[in-house]
Design a binder for these strands. Structure first.
Length: 319
DNA sequence: AAGGAGGCCAACCGCGAAGAT
DNA sequence: TATCTTCGCGGTTGGCCTCCT
């Protein structure tokens, strides 16, 4: 059977996204949630294929994304996870809230690989490049246990960053060759890894990876809620937007007119794309504690379709 | 200051998996 | 069961940016 192209190539735009396209996509997804991606471009009024929209959203526009370089701790997690999972970037990314598989993949290829090689470690196998130079491995503790420790004691890890090299080396040496060369794992093993990193995921307490899926019949049709109305203060919150993007998408929040939505700027200064998510946490915890602050979001909550907003994780996640 | 080289990263491509018919 | 559709993943590419000469 012939495989159909993901979209009609004719007439569809490719290449860097413009801020206008970003706005359309953001507005559409904020208003409607994620539905079938194939339908998104049409409904959002974009000349892109659904795949492109999904990528743009997941890799760049999602509000929960962290921007900027991976921290030492995140980097170490990536290395540990890569040793266990191999090039399964999406799996690795799922353990690093706010990071995308693409981002991790890029970081791996551009930074970590080099770092490891510099340290004398083969980034593919996580074993020493030259076994001659390395001392015999210490009595092998369980690798999973080691990883678990590294996750459960982030502060300690940070405190002994200088020893991270040896940690990684040990990790590599402790790996059975077949484990290293066979990244594929059983479901049980993956669950194990998942539980291993639960702590990390809980630490974040903020993951809106799951923008609610909605049924097509629940979807609002373009251009979303009251496209004619203009946001009064969205640009204020955008003042701290990260500059990490190139290709004309910088400061998209400066231009982004979220539908009738005012960020609660009186109390919390939030940069949507700030590296520091503490403001988000503050916001979330405010909402969480008895939802006293729920009124902060009224303007937006009232404007969005119920199918989207009456789900707790959506409310907590995005707002 | 100009030009070249390499780094970096957003986006694209093609494949496989999973679900629907 | 076979075929089709859609989505997600991993590898790769293209082009901007920065550094070096």
């Amino acid at each position: 059977m012939g495989r159909q192209p993901c979209c009609d190539k004719v007439g569809l735009k490719k290449g860097p996204w413009t801020s206008d396209e970003d706005n359309k996509l953001i507005n559409f997804i904020l208003a409607n949630g994620q539905c079938c991606w194939r339908a998104v471009p049409k409904l959002a009024g974009l000349l892109r294929c659904g795949k492109s929209c999904r990528l743009r959203w997941t890799n760049y526009l999602r509000p929960d994304l962290k921007r900027g370089l991976l921290s030492e701790y995140e980097e170490k997690m990536v290395i540990d996870l890569h040793a266990q999972l191999g090039n399964r970037w999406s799996k690795i990314a799922s353990h690093l809230p706010g990071r995308t598989d693409n981002e991790i993949k890029n970081h791996w290829n551009t930074h970590i690989k080099k770092k490891l090689r510099k340290m004398g470690i083969d980034p593919l196998t996580h074993k020493p490049l030259s076994t001659i130079e390395t001392p015999p491995p210490p009595p092998p503790p369980q690798q999973e246990v080691q990883v678990q420790n590294s996750i459960q004691e982030p502060e300690q890890q940070a405190g002994r960053q200088s020893s991270s090299t040896s940690d990684i080396s040990e990790l590599g040496q402790n790996n059975e060759p077949e484990t290293l060369l066979q990244p594929a794992r059983t479901q049980d093993e993956e669950n194990n890894i998942g539980s291993t990193y639960d702590t990390m995921e809980r630490m974040s307490s903020f993951c809106i990876d799951e923008v609610p899926l909605i049924e097509p019949h629940e979807m609002l049709v373009p251009g979303g809620p009251s496209p004619s109305s203009t946001s009064t203060s969205s640009s204020t919150s955008a003042s701290s937007a990260s500059s990490s993007s190139s290709y004309g998408s910088n400061n998209i929040l400066d231009e982004l007119l979220l539908p009738d939505f005012e960020w609660p700027l009186n109390n919390v200064d939030i940069g949507l794309w700030d590296d520091d998510l503490s403001s988000w946490d503050l916001l979330i915890s405010d909402v969480d504690s008895g939802r006293k602050q729920a009124t902060m979001f009224d303007p937006f909550l009232n404007q969005c379709p119920r199918t989207v907003l009456d789900q707790d994780y959506w409310t907590y996640g995005l707002l």
